[in-house]
Design a protein around this nucleic acid. Structure first.
Lengths: 246, 246
DNA sequence: CGCGATTTGTGCACGGCTTCACAAGCGCCT
DNA sequence: AGGCGCTTGTGAAGCCGTGCACAAATCGCG
């Protein structure tokens, strides 16, 4: 995609990063951008770890996978590290994203500024409802889902977001895959079946709340216990209190 | 909160469930509701596992933590299992949730039907912008964030959703905690510092896309390799293709 | 030029989670 | 009543991720 990037000589693009590390790199990236805005040009692992809400040893181990990045006794060069992480995450160019389903949630996602500021460009909106086709949202016009193949081709879209009702999601996923999309972010509360080679990540808002509900339920059971035992158990739960990452 | 539920005699409400299991129970619950609607009254672990997109052995181990639930040779009783899981997750009564920040995303969340159908009730909306206070959304009126303590008290709210810009989130979190909220779902792209005993879960939409971007980047690097090697590597990645859970 | 302060990079051990494989249990059919 | 097929529940092994603790490396200062 980017200039010489696809050549066989530019080395393995870290195909062997631990998945847990990959999931944290974006967090580091965001923290680094904040630090850069505040004028820092170097950070210690301790400092960056605090800003990202993780253990400093974990952070160092994560970054060590990217090759030699920091300098001992000093820390990490902020802009250099930003470049490296963006390189690894494939954010050197702005990726085009398709959004399918312009309902309640889809509307909000279409207008979400966070995508634009962090490496993505919503390149097309789709809906199956002819009543919605043609509507303008945030400078984009909603197109019918039948137009998917052409638009995906034209805009070189490889990532799509599904924000449809659950009953429509599988069909949409099939059509996305058929059109050439190979990564899907699914907001519909259902399991998607996709062929090998296609990545799916799921965000289910109700599930997040239900997980919180469990902890809530457990906490209320504990506080109802007679003093000592309840407090000890509460104390034992401290570890889970911070950074319950998604 | 619920009737006799807080008594010391109703046993430990499974305080020792593995966190990974807790995160999957809501998924099972959703699949079970679908199965119930389709008229099934029993499911095998294999069938439920397929519907939830997980390994069947994992599912059995997860459910075994809830006590004796299935019958060998038959499977699991759907409605019974639904009751058990809802019991464990603390969903026997509808929990009241506060939503702070009625911007782009907040609007969508306020109208999201999935909360209501899965055990939650958006009980109050808040915003710091006086221009938005008083606005009606989905039958609720937006209140100013200064009213938080009273409303949290009145409505017995213990869970809150933060959908504010990042720079406001920490302040909102502090005020929520001060008002008595003990579980927070944070959509703002920042790290929240909260005292022990308060649970925070984070959903960062851009991070999800960035993780997909990494895999996308890696895939394109692989396909660019000369035939054999690239295909072998692609083949080696099949495992990661399905159910990349959040 | 050398020393000490500081911070990275990592070996190692530990714990949790996942997966396989199989024994135990249940219902049905003869 | 007895056997057979099916499905659960679980022991055990392996893998991944985490966090401690320390050696190696770098900078600044005298």
């Amino acid at each position: 995609m980017s200039q010489q990037r696809t050549g066989p000589t530019d080395g393995p693009d870290f195909p062997d990063l631990p998945e847990a590390t990959v999931a944290r790199l974006p967090e580091y990236l965001r923290a680094l951008h904040n630090l850069a805005e505040d004028g820092h040009d170097t950070v210690s692992s301790e400092g960056l770890a605090a800003a990202a809400g993780v253990n400093s040893a974990k952070l160092r181990k994560d970054l060590s996978h990217l090759g030699r990045t920091g300098t001992r006794g000093v820390g990490y060069d902020v802009t250099l590290l930003i470049d490296q992480i963006e390189q690894v995450l494939g954010l050197t160019h702005r990726r085009a994203v398709a959004l399918v389903g312009v309902g309640n949630l889809g509307h909000a996602l279409a207008g979400y500024a966070g995508f634009g500021s962090r490496g993505f460009r919503i390149a097309a909106l789709f809906d199956a409802d002819h009543g919605r086709v043609g509507e303008h949202i945030n400078g984009l016009v909603v197109r019918h889902i039948d137009d998917l193949p052409e638009v995906v081709e034209e805009e070189s879209i490889s990532i799509a977001v599904i924000a449809t009702p659950a009953h429509a999601a599988q069909n949409v996923a099939d059509r996305l895959v058929a059109a050439g999309v190979t990564s899907v972010l699914n907001f519909a509360p259902c399991v998607l079946n996709v062929p090998e080679g296609v990545d799916v990540r799921k965000v289910d808002l109700a599930i997040e709340l239900q997980i919180l509900s469990f902890h809530e339920h457990r906490k209320s059971a504990l506080t109802a216990l007679p003093g000592r035992a309840g407090q000890d158990l509460q104390r034992a739960n401290r570890l889970g209190a911070e950074a319950v990452g998604s």
